[in-house]
């Protein structure tokens, strides 16, 4: 199956830089620690504080399979190097190939970034393990969060094809995910109407819902409803945009 092979080779590529990534993990951990310190200074030594610590560190760990996936699903890089041509010469669709390439990277990040950072959190910050009944739901919701992130990255990638300059779209992506993803702030802390808006946006599916399901503060049903809705919307948009883009490449040149 081509998809699987693409994922495998993408996974292997990550491993070529394992050492660098492990150093980077410590950096991620420190970021988590900063946020934990901020929250702790506000909440003191309370139950809520300990829950927040877990919330924050779970998010820090899963950022590597959600927010920090491939920039633009690797497409801007391929355009810079010219190798995008080959992706157009393959007997499969660009969306399909990109998806599996990102899945490969996601698997790598899961094993070599998410897990180590999470482990550091367990060891040094008192992160709580999930209740056994929450493990499977968390995995499902995390995977969905990954998919949402993939589509958003893919759109950034398509944008760079059209406009030959991804940095704007990439920056916008970071901003939106940062602001509405919920990795620092759960929905209840958002003021006014944002409190209700934030959980409805796709970004929340990347951090807020997975971490909340982990903690048990949001049920699987609600999380799934949100994520499946957005995955469908994003998927259909991705298919349509891909078709349009490929057609325009065909007309205007690779």
């Amino acid at each position: 199956m081509s998809g699987f092979a693409i994922a495998v080779i993408s996974f292997k590529r990550g491993r070529a830089y394992l050492l660098n990534h492990l150093v980077n993990n410590v950096g991620s951990f420190v970021f988590g620690y900063i946020y934990v310190s901020i929250w702790r200074s506000a909440l003191g030594e309370s139950q809520e504080s300990s829950v927040m610590v877990t919330y924050l560190m779970v998010n820090q760990s899963i950022l590597w399979v959600t927010m920090f996936l491939s920039k633009g699903a690797f497409i801007p890089q391929k355009i810079r190097e010219g190798t995008i041509t080959f992706d157009l010469l393959r007997p499969y669709n660009l969306l399909y190939g990109s998806l599996f390439e990102v899945i490969g990277q996601g698997m790598y990040n899961l094993l070599f970034r998410t897990l180590p950072i999470f482990a550091l959190g367990l060891m040094f910050l008192g992160v709580r393990l999930p209740e056994p009944s929450k493990v499977l739901p968390f995995c499902i919701v995390l995977f969905n969060g990954f998919l949402i992130s993939f589509f958003l990255n893919y759109f950034v990638g398509l944008w760079s094809v059209k406009f030959l300059g991804a940095s704007g779209a990439q920056g916008l992506y970071y901003m939106l995910v940062n602001l509405f993803g919920g990795s620092f702030l759960p929905a209840s802390y958002y003021p006014g109407f944002l409190k209700r808006l934030m959980p409805l946006l796709p970004f929340a599916g990347m951090n807020y819902y997975p971490a909340s399901v982990y903690l048990g503060s949001i049920g699987l049903g609600i999380a799934l409803a949100h994520q499946v809705f957005w995955i469908c919307v994003l998927f259909i948009t991705a298919v349509l945009l891909t078709r349009r883009l490929l057609r325009s490449i065909q007309i205007h040149g690779g």
Binding site: I38, S167, G171, P191
Partner: peptide, 24 residues
């Protein structure tokens, strides 16, 4: 666009802090 966006990124961090401080 890029200039606005680079500013907005920082702004999003600060905004989150702002929301946080509303509670704390």
């Amino acid at each position: 666009m890029d200039m606005t966006i680079s500013g907005l990124n920082l702004f999003s961090d600060f905004l989150l802090l702002f929301f946080f401080m509303l509670s704390f």
